[in-house]
Structures are given as C-alpha cells and as structure tokens.
Design a protein around this nucleic acid. Structure first.
Length: 442
RNA sequence: CGGGGUAUAGCUCAGCCUGGUAGAGCACUGGUUUUGGGAACCAGGGGUCGAGAGUUCGAAUCUUUCUGCCCCGACCA
C-alpha cells in the first residue's frame, strides 16, 4: 500500500479527550474516530488491526472445535422476557421500539438467542457437545464510557456458548475454551493470566477472567510470578483429549483480581514471587449450568430417554477492547509497537526523498519485490521531510522499517530498523530482502 | 446516577474578568529556499465562537435554559 493513496489521518497533537495511552495513540495514529461517547468509527488502519485480532480469535475458536455462526445485533424482547432478564437488565440495555410498536433491543449478549436456536434443533444427547460462537457488535449503554475502545458502549465481542448433557461434560467444554484462550492471547503477543472470578449465584470454580498485565490497567491484580513465563500449548494440542493438566497448571498458583483478592493466601507466596500489578480484563469464561436452559426449556434426551435441561457455559473475548489492550501492553514514548501477528503491515518502507530518481527507483523496486514475495508493506512515498516520516512510522508502530535515501542509494545500502528494539543495520537491498523474507515468512 | 469541569478554525489553545469589526501555533492551498529524526520565508483559504432565549445601540464576552464531550466516584467485556 502506498501511503499517498491510503487513508491514514495522523494527528501531531493529542486530542484533549484522550486520557490513557492506547486511546491517545489510536487517535493519533488515525485508527479510530469517535462518533459519540463510547462509539467509534474504525478507520482503515484501525480496522486492519481489528480484523487481524478477529481472525486469530476465530482460528483458535475453530481449532478448539467451536462452530461459528452469526446472530443479529437487534433482538426481540420476547426472548429476554422468557429468561427473566428483560426486567433484570438495567438501563445498560438499549431498548428500541420498532414501527409495529414491538419491543426490541440492541443485544448486550446472546445467551437467550443462542439458547433459542439450540432448543429449536437439538433434541438428543447424541448431538452434544456443541459450542456455538459468533463475533458480533454488542451494545451496552454504559453510564460512563471511557478509555476509548477499552470501555466503549458499542464493542466487538467474540461470545461462545457451550451445550452439554452433564456438568462433567460441561467442564470439558470449559477446559477447551480455557486452553483456546491461552493460545489466542499468546498469538496476539500478550501474556494473559486466568484469574479466579466471582461466580455469583451459580457458585463453583468454573469461572475465570483473563487478565493482561499493563501499567495503565483499570484494576489491581495479584498473582504468582510463575504465570509470567508458563508455557502455552502448541497448535498440535488435541482438543478432544484430556486438557485438565493444562488447566490445572494454570490454576495451581494464586491469581486474583481486586474483588477476589485474599490477602492471607497471597501472603503465603514467597515475597520475591508476589506480583502485584495493574490489569486489563480481556476475556471471561464461565459455566452457568441450567440458568437459561431451565426457564427457556432447552432440553435434550439422555441415553435413558429422559429429557433434561442442558448444561451451558459462555465464553467472551472483547475483540475491540483487545486492540486497546495490545497497545497498552506494547508501546513506547514514540508510539505503538505492534506484535507481528496483528500489525496491519509487516514493513514500513520510507523514502527519504520522494521525487529523487535513484531513490524512487530503489524504493519502487524493493516495494515490488517484497509485495510479490507475499509481505505486506506500507510505502511512505509522500513528498515530505524525513523527520516527519520517521515520527509517523514510529507512531504507527509497524514491526520493521526500511529506510531508503539518496546517500544510501549512492553507496548501495539501505537501513533496516526494528521498531521494538530500535536496532538498525545498514544492508544492501538484497540482504535486507533476504533477511525480511527469512524473518517474516518463517 | 451523584460530584466537578469544558465547549472559539481539522488539531492544540488564547481572547471572556473589564461588551465595541474573531486570533495564534500546527495542519491545508500556491510559491521560493531547503532536505537523513516533526524546516524557514512569502502569499492564501478556512469559524452562524455548541444551541435557544434574554439584557444591551452593540454579545465569543453578561444572564438564563438546554445539549454534547471530558474527568472523579458507583457500575461493567
């Protein structure tokens, strides 16, 4: 992509409404534009990141055996009246009346709807287990939206719903999601720690919040240092096998958010292993049994022929929030530092002197070569001074920068810079190409 | 939903106290000189000063009502 033909409205100054770093950087890097409190347009650069995250989440859901569908944003109120939540859910639910005066709502979540879909078609234990998920925009009319996309009113969320005959089976479904989440966050370049969450009236140990540590996190969290470098299952993990060893490994040590914090238990950890930090919740999984299947009559026949309500769980990942969380966890004073897995482009190619014949030729040649080799390149071909280009490229945080100017072209060298480490090296165009190909296509 | 702010050019802000023809920097357009870490100069374009009502000869400025947005708290993926 040539920057001169892209839409990347970079801001030199920070809009005053942005308080936290991810919000500031997302506005400055031309990723989002606010349309109303907590409601954002995703501009091309931001949209590209959102799609990368979306796709990784999808791939890991699919790998775990979950099946994708797509439910609507607008739901009829009747389903919610059936479960009893129409009255329970407060003003956070955006209620709408259509032209026929029917009560509708903009979905804040989809338990009722997916239960309705399930009960219409599944009647036997032979069709279980089943896990249905979608990635869809939700709306919660927060009293006080803030932190940009981290706490918006409209947000993109992956929500999965598992259906099982028994609680024991539901635990297996829970474990599958647990492991899928570990893999998902790792692929996104994040260290996410599963922490005990409040299970509310359901009770039990099957609920965890996945927390990313970041200095600017919204809440205080406490955990054992071991979590910071626990291995994550590789892509060959068998989701039909017994996943409990992995879950056990990740639940053996102390980890809790503020609300669930137990000072005494935390004190038992050797002092040097105690981690007390700020965290961002990027996922939440929980088992809730027959809370919806009971009132909504979602029952299946067991092997004995008797109908029983299915055991359900739901599993959320805040996809749009993750974009902010990744920035919170990965930036410096100059801007964003994208993990390679979610970077909108792998390489930023800077022409230090657009219009200079030899420089243009060198840039065009390399741009074409890299692109043809399957690498994604944002080519800054604007006629602009070098300083501004360097600042822009650091701000938008592409993992690799290729810097080509008249001096280097004359001596046959270009500069390759790693955004994260800041390391630069002068290479011939061939060497730079080979290095990038070896690094990025591996 | 309680408390506190704020609203002037695309962005950051001054002007308001003490009413008198709407400003600066950056950005944008044209030009000249520059050119390896956010250049300089010259010439331009761009604002019903959030909206309504009032006071006044005259309102960005004073009074008042409304609205948007932001921050703190309670609440939450």
């Amino acid at each position: 992509m040539r920057l001169s033909r892209y839409f990347l409205p970079i801001l030199k100054e920070t809009p005053k409404e942005a308080e936290i770093v991810s919000h500031r950087l997302m506005l400055r890097a031309g990723m989002i534009r606010q349309q109303s409190a907590g409601i954002y347009s995703w501009l091309p650069f931001g949209h590209a990141v959102l799609q990368k995250v979306d796709q990784i989440v999808r791939e890991e859901q699919n790998r775990s055996g979950a099946v994708e569908l797509l439910m609507p944003t607008i739901q009829p109120a009747d389903l919610w009246k059936e479960s009893g939540r129409y009255d329970d859910y407060g003003k956070e639910m955006l209620r709408i009346t259509d032209r026929h005066d029917r009560d509708m709502l903009f979905g804040p979540t989809n338990e009722e709807m997916v239960t309705d879909i399930f009960r219409g078609s599944v009647k036997s234990y032979k069709d279980l287990p089943l896990n249905l998920y979608h990635i869809q925009w939700k709306f919660r009319d927060e009293v006080r939206p803030r932190f940009g996309v981290m706490r918006g009113r409209e947000f993109l969320m992956k929500d999965a719903y598992s259906f099982d005959l028994t609680k024991e089976d539901a635990r297996k479904s829970y474990n599958r999601m647990f492991v899928a989440y570990l893999r998902t966050y790792q692929r996104l370049g994040l260290t996410a720690i599963p922490m005990k969450a409040d299970s509310g009236p359901i009770g039990g140990d099957m609920t965890h919040e996945f927390i990313v540590l970041a200095d600017t996190g919204e809440s205080e969290v406490f955990c054992h240092r071991d979590f910071l470098d626990l291995p994550v299952p590789d892509e060959n993990i068998d989701f039909d096998g017994d996943l409990s060893p992995w879950v056990d490994k990740y639940t053996a040590q102390y980890a809790a958010t503020e609300e669930m914090h137990d000072e005494a238990a935390f004190a038992e950890i050797p002092e040097e292993d105690r981690v007390s930090a700020r965290g961002i919740e990027v996922g939440h999984i929980f088992y809730f049994g027959t809370k919806y299947s009971e009132p909504m009559n979602a029952r299946v026949a067991g092997p004995d022929g008797v109908d029983v309500p299915v055991h359900m769980g739901s599993y959320g990942i805040g996809v749009s929030r993750l974009v902010g969380a990744i920035i919170e966890a990965s930036h410096d004073e100059n801007g964003i530092i994208w993990p390679e897995s979610v970077a909108p482009f792998q390489i930023g190619l800077i022409s230090l002197k657009a219009g200079h014949e030899a420089t243009d030729a060198a840039c065009e040649g390399l741009y074409e070569r890299l692109t043809n080799a399957g690498m994604s390149v944002l080519y800054d071909d604007r006629d602009m001074r070098a300083g501004g280009k360097f600042a822009s490229m650091d701000l938008i945080g592409l993992p690799w920068q290729l810097i080509i100017g008249p001096k280097g072209v004359e001596s046959g060298e270009i500069e390759l810079k790693n955004r994260r480490t800041g390391a630069r090296e002068s290479l011939t165009p061939d060497a730079a190409f080979n290095k990038l190909q070896a690094t990025l296509n591996s």
